[in-house]
Design a protein around this nucleic acid. Structure first.
Length: 622
RNA sequence: GCCUUCGUAGCUCAGCGGUAGAGCGGCGCUUUCGUAAAGCGUAGGUCGCCGGUUCGAAUCCGGCCGAAGGCUCCA
């Protein structure tokens, strides 16, 4: 963060400055004080919050040294909702420690200790931080002359600045959790203990954020998925191996039928290929060399080695290569609901959204050249926009993931990268889709467009990608015959739209909070007979709905009508049809909408019509 | 995979050295009801698994399995 210090201007006198009294320390050079006074009110809110959060991290470290003087300090930056500080400690932190630390922080905040910043020489810094190995590690990256430290209430931290004037300006906060984190985010480094805190400008905003967290817990697909019978995970089946229950299988089937129809309309050719292949296939594609760690172990029988496929591309490439291709056939769009297996590390699995066996709405488009790639990328983006609009998804954004020239992580072919990146950028701009650029996030073989969305828990996840691939066509020496009668190498566009069925359904559960629109709802209507004598009529009503291919059940349990209605509401069934004496008499049903109320009696045929048109329109309500 | 926490009935959870409990749910009976929970009765648990300490372990210790929150990773 840039310092607010302006050398030469008369400092706006602050408490911090007046109390600053750098000691001469026996004739050695005196650290040079820096006036970092800021007028908080004049700053953009974002920066004001960042300063508060970062300052709170300092106070946390101060408190920690009070609790454990031997604590080794890592870093303590502001983050999206608060701050954290990493420590290496002689023992694991407990919940009680958190309470103590928070109380100790509040005392420091109440005392309005000024923050004082000063510049020190490398020599001074090495001496000052000789017992703090992580600070020494940080010093390695700092040039002499840019080393600064910040002190408040007798606690000094190596720090580049960005504070409030005194601890009293720190907003309301809470310490929330303890977590492990590798030093500098590298798993080869030691694991530190990270204390997280949340901090906002006002008590109201803090309370609002906590309310949002509560809300997120309510939307959690793992909870709703169990309550609505959508999926289950069994220890015996294995972690990350999703079992789709009837309700979930219904949702998935609807999504699959829909997307396959959309794709076929757009010239995709759907195929079905086996989820197992010989190891050699993946050696040739390069996956074995690059992604072995993420693959299930090899199976061996009769001197042949097989793997569960982590990706579908090689299979589709074989289909392309299985006959001589003419430029007239391109772009050739091969699509599949392809099941893939990836050995995600055990700690990375989450419910249905991060799993080990998944089915991707996958396709590989074999293109004749950059112009076709551009056209196809545009077609994919248009399809995405249509699909996400139908599903009511709004909270996503596009990310253009770029390579890094000269980095060993990426294929060395600058011309290819330039071409690929600029064409993807051009397509996004042409369609007027806002996007962010992310250097270094590309696939090793080419740039890509990622569709990013936020989970209920607030984490960013990649839904799908559009990738430009110049690499696999080389590995497999793909060719088509051009207009000139000569062989040419195609370019492959890898793309998904619905993502994996697992991740998409997890996302939709959270998006709808389990209230699936009619066309996706596992049970679309429940008929509730008021008394036993209405059961026969209820069955007739259900039969009429079923004849229109609506998914309907009759609640014949020996329960009161109120209980049946309540249970159907809790199961988030879109429509409830109540039938009693009056309805039997009139040939009607009393219709009740999920989340709404009693719409009154109407002819059964009218209800069938209403539901049918709502379903066929894929309406988002109810 | 790493750090921390957690694992008791189908679900939510209490019990935390003396031999297992509640609510909801299930099942049975009664009730036949007009828009979000009828009443009564009853069954159900090797307290995640394996080992150790102890006269005695759901409870303490160790290992393993699984889950959660982070970190790392995410083709």
């Amino acid at each position: 963060m840039p310092s607010a210090a302006m050398p030469g201007t008369p400092p706006a006198r602050t408490l911090a400055f007046e109390t600053a009294s750098p000691s001469a320390r026996g004739g050695r050079t005196v650290p040079e004080p820096i006036d970092e006074h800021v007028d908080l009110a004049s700053l953009p809110k974002e920066e004001r919050l960042a300063r508060m959060r970062h300052s709170a991290a300092h106070v946390l470290a101060e408190a920690m040294l009070d609790l454990m003087p031997e604590a080794e300090l890592g870093i303590g930056p502001p983050i999206e909702t608060g701050f954290y500080y990493d420590f290496r400690l002689p023992r694991p932190l407990t919940q009680e420690d958190l309470v103590w630390l928070e109380e100790r922080m509040r005392r420091s905040v109440a005392a309005c200790h000024p923050f004082r910043m000063e510049r020190i020489t490398r020599q001074e810094a090495l001496e000052r931080w000789k017992n703090q190995p992580f600070k020494l590690d940080l010093l390695k990256d700092l040039a002499d002359g840019e080393i600064t430290q910040v002190t408040h209430n007798g606690f000094t931290d190596l720090c580049k600045g960005g504070h409030v004037n005194h601890t009293g300006e720190i907003g309301p906060f809470k310490l929330t959790s303890i977590a492990g984190a590798y030093w500098r985010g590298d798993e080869k480094n030691p694991m530190l203990q990270r204390v997280y805190g949340i901090l906002f400008e006002t008590e109201e905003e803090l309370a609002e954020y906590e309310r949002q967290l509560e809300e997120a817990r309510r939307r959690d697909h793992r909870r709703i998925g169990r309550e609505l019978g959508i999926f289950a995970l069994f220890d015996e089946v294995g972690p990350g191996h999703v079992v789709w229950l009837p309700a979930g299988a219904t949702i998935r089937r609807e999504l699959e039928r829909w997307i396959v129809d959309l794709e076929v309309e757009r010239g995709y050719q759907h195929v079905v290929t086996p989820p197992v292949a010989k190891l050699e296939l993946y050696q040739r594609s390069g996956h074995w060399q690059h992604y072995q760690d993420a693959m299930y172990p090899v199976m061996e029988r009769e001197n042949e080695r097989y793997v569960l496929r982590p990706m579908n591309c090689p299979h589709h490439i074989l289909i392309f290569a299985s006959q001589q291709r003419s430029y007239r056939e391109l772009p050739l769009r091969i699509a599949e609901l392809g099941t893939m297996h990836r050995w995600e590390k055990s700690g990375e699995l989450t419910g249905m959204s991060r799993v080990r066996i998944m089915t991707l709405n996958d396709a590989h488009i074999f293109c004749a050249g950059p112009e076709q790639v551009e056209q196809e990328a545009e077609g994919v983006l248009r399809l995405m926009e249509e699909v996400y609009a139908t599903l009511g998804l709004r909270d996503y954004y596009y990310r253009l993931s770029l390579g890094e020239r000269g980095s060993p992580k990426f294929v060395d072919n600058p011309a290819m990268w330039d071409a690929g990146e600029s064409l993807l950028r051009r397509v996004l701009e042409k369609l007027g889709l806002p996007f962010v650029e992310a250097p270094g996030e590309a696939a090793f073989y080419g740039p890509k467009i990622d569709v990013q969305f936020k989970t209920a828990a607030g984490k960013d996840e990649t839904l799908v990608t559009i990738q430009v691939d110049f690499h696999l066509p080389n590995q497999f020496e793909l060719e088509y015959i051009g207009e000139d009668g000569q062989p040419h190498r195609p370019i492959i566009v890898h793309r998904g739209v619905l993502s994996t069925m697992e991740r998409m359904v997890a996302l939709l559960i959270e998006q709808y909070e389990g209230n699936f629109p009619l066309w996706l709802a596992p049970t679309q209507a429940v008929v509730v007979p008021i008394a036993d004598r209405h059961v026969e009529y209820a069955r007739q009503v259900a039969a009429k709905l079923r004849a229109a291919r609506l998914r309907v059940t009759v609640d014949e349990r020996n329960e009161r009508m109120n209980a049946k209605i309540r249970d159907a509401q809790l199961q988030k069934v879109p429509y409830i049809l109540v039938v009693g004496d009056r309805e039997v008499q009139a040939g009607t049903a009393a219709l009740r909408v999920r989340g709404g109320g009693d719409l009154g009696a109407m002819p059964v045929d009218a209800i069938v019509e209403r539901l049918r048109s709502e379903r066929d329109a894929r309406a988002l309500v109810p």
